[in-house]
Nucleic acid binder design. Sequence first.
DNA 1: CTCTGAATAT
DNA 2: TATATTCAGA
Length: 413
Amino acid sequence: MKLEQAFNAGVGLVSESLKPVKESLVSILQLGQDNGEVGKDESDTEHVSVHEPSTPQLKCGTPFMDGNCLQEKANFSTQKQSRDQYAESKSVETTFDDSTAETLPGEKSDLQSVEGGLIKVKDNSGDNNSKIESSMSPLVQAKNDSHDCADNTVRFSGTQNSTRKTNKKKLKIDWTPDLHKKFVQAVEQLGAGQVIPSRILELMKVEGLTRHNVASHLQKYRMNRRHILSKEDERRCPQNKDAALKNYYPNRPIMAFPPYHSHHISYPVWGLQGNHQHPMQYWSPPLQPAENWQWKPYPALHADAWGCPVVPAFQGMGFPFPQDGSGYHTAGAVDNASEQSSFRLHPILNFKTVMQAEEVVDRVVKEAISKPWLPLPLGLKSPPTDGVLAELSRQGIIPCIPHQHGDLELDPH
DNA sequence: CTCTGAATAT
DNA sequence: TATATTCAGA
């Protein structure tokens, strides 16, 4: 008797514990087909890991996430769906309704062209996985290890909302460091005034991400920034504490450009960490690590949560440069709208042009040097004369006559 | 109507 | 807390 009970219990346990394994195996097998595709373009490829609840079927005939870890939680939305302001999310949302069979329609945008996306599915609810296997797209990868999403994986987590009987499930996106990094990069790429969900979404090129997802994250992102700004304010002017705290949109001057040190200038480049000499360190005291926007589940990441290159001055922020003008020559007050203000005057921070940034600065500086009669560009200040002379003489340049022609060559040779 | 941003819900 | 959903306004 006891033996039998024990046996049965054991069987139950085993079968229970095997569920996820089974699911993973299935997904892995399915994934196999995509591996080639996935591997072919690592940079552009994103994997999606989905924490998939139960019953819902994940139908995605289209290539999925272009890469990042999204985690979606399966909610069964009440969906009044009245006006489908989720039009765009339709392409994103995975529907688990068998009847409606709302699938992931090909994305109208380029998103759909993204290949090699993977979806990692994790079954949290533990109830039937079978449906998932059967309907799961080849791109869907079951199971998610934390490392799975390390490389361009989008992860969803799913939980079934028992209260709702709707067949729709909302996936809760897991903004993993990678995904967030993409986000931040997108934000940086976007010029001032363009930091809007739709644009970010475009740039991120993560299939499965909705504008809503991005908007939501952006909201958090902005809030965080404001919070940090306030802290910064507070640090600087403790007497203005209250003002700083409620100062959501600090309206203050910001620098036009980082201080120019031709050979020391350092730009934020993801993955290029360990920049010791970041100019900002000088200008702005480090924030407290109190802004623990760290992605706790991924302690290995040293980069701050917002993907910011870990520069002490900006830990916790998605922005490598200060949002205020402390220490800089100010460019005048700017409008206060969050990141817009930060980027409006930082055209050179466009991520894509980071490599050109120095060139630009060089050109500007050279121009300034060559045409001393013109006012200095914003963000540049005239260096101490003796310093300039010293440097020029050190370089063997005769420090006297500014060239008359526009393109000044400082090269002594 | 769509999109955004903020508020609110889960 | 993090993310989703709702809502009001542009």
